[in-house]
C-alpha cells in the first residue's frame, strides 16, 4: 500500500490505468443503459419509469461511495501523511458531487410520475441533499486551502466528520417513515428479479469503473498542478538569488 503512495510509482500505474478505466467504464455503462432502456420489460407497478433506476441506483451508490473514498483517504492522510491520500480525497470530490446530483435529479424525475411529486422532505431524500451540500463545502474548502496555503488537515477533518452522513443515508429508510422504498439489495439477498438485477449490476460496475477513471484523471491533474507550481516557485527563488548575487 505504501509503495503506491510514491508519486512516481503512482504515475507509472495511472498512465495506463486512467484510459483503461474510462474506456471500459464508458463501454460497459453504455451497454447496461442500452439493455435497461431497450430490453428490460416494463415493471408491473412502475411501468416504464423502472428504466430510470439503471441511472439512479449506480449514481446513488457512487455519491455515497465518493464520500466514503474521501473519508478513507482523509484518514490515511491524517495518520500516515501521504500526500497522495490527500490528492485521492480531492480527486473523488467532483465526481462524487456529479453523481449525487445525477441521483437527486433522476430520483426527482422518477418521483413525479410514480409518487405524484417531484420532491418530499423525507429522510432519504433530505440526507442525500445534505450530501450534495457537503460535497460543495468540501470542494470550496479544499480549493481555498490549496490557493491560500492553509493546512491540508482542515479539508481532511471535514471529510472525516462528513462521513457521519453516510450511515444516516443508508439507514434513513429504516429509521424514518419514508416514501422511498426500503433496501432492495442487502448482504447476500435481493428482492429484485434477475431480469432487472443483472443489467442493474452491470450498470453499477460500468459507472464504478468510470468513476475510478475520473478520480485518477483528477488526481493526475492535481498532481501536475502542484508539480508545476513548485517548479515555478523554485525558478523564481533561483532568479531572486541570482539577482541578489
Amino acid at each position: 500500500m505504501h509503495g503506491f503512495a510514491n508519486p512516481k510509482r503512482f504515475l507509472e500505474i495511472a498512465r495506463w490505468l486512467t484510459p483503461t478505466l474510462l474506456i471500459s467504464g464508458l463501454i460497459i455503462t453504455a451497454a447496461a443503459l442500452g439493455w435497461g432502456y431497450f430490453m428490460v420489460p416494463p415493471d408491473r407497478l412502475m411501468g416504464d419509469t423502472v428504466r430510470i433506476l439503471f441511472l439512479h441506483v449506480p449514481s446513488a451508490w457512487l455519491g455515497m461511495g465518493g464520500w466514503s473514498a474521501i473519508a478513507i483517504s482523509s484518514l490515511m492522510f491524517l495518520v500516515w501523511r501521504h500526500p497522495l491520500a490527500g490528492l485521492a480525497a480531492r480527486g473523488a470530490a467532483v465526481p462524487g458531487l456529479v453523481f449525487t446530483v445525477i441521483c437527486l435529479v433522476t430520483g426527482s424525475i422518477w418521483g413525479r410520475p410514480t409518487w405524484g411529486t417531484w420532491w418530499v422532505w423525507d429522510g432519504r431524500l433530505t440526507s442525500m441533499l445534505v450530501l450534495m451540500f457537503l460535497y460543495i463545502g468540501y470542494i470550496a474548502l479544499a480549493q481555498a486551502v490549496s490557493r491560500d496555503g492553509g493546512s491540508s488537515r482542515i479539508p481532511a477533518i471535514y471529510g472525516l466528520v462528513g462521513a457521519i452522513n453516510i450511515p444516516i443515508i443508508n439507514r434513513s429508510v429504516v429509521w424514518w417513515q419514508s416514501l422511498h422504498q426500503p433496501p432492495s439489495i442487502t448482504m447476500g439477498k435481493s428482492a429484485i428479479d434477475n431480469e432487472f438485477l443483472i443489467p442493474l449490476l452491470i450498470a453499477v460496475a460500468g459507472f464504478s469503473l468510470l468513476f475510478g477513471g475520473v478520480v485518477l484523471a483528477r488526481m493526475r491533474a492535481l498532481l501536475a498542478e502542484i508539480q508545476t507550481e513548485s517548479r515555478l516557485r523554485r525558478k523564481a527563488l533561483g532568479a531572486q538569488a541570482e539577482g541578489a548575487a
Binding site: L33, V105, I109, P113
Partner: peptide
C-alpha cells in the same frame, strides 16, 4: 420522464 432522466 425516462428520456429526460437518461438525457440528463
Amino acid at each position: 420522464f425516462v428520456i429526460a432522466a437518461y438525457a440528463f
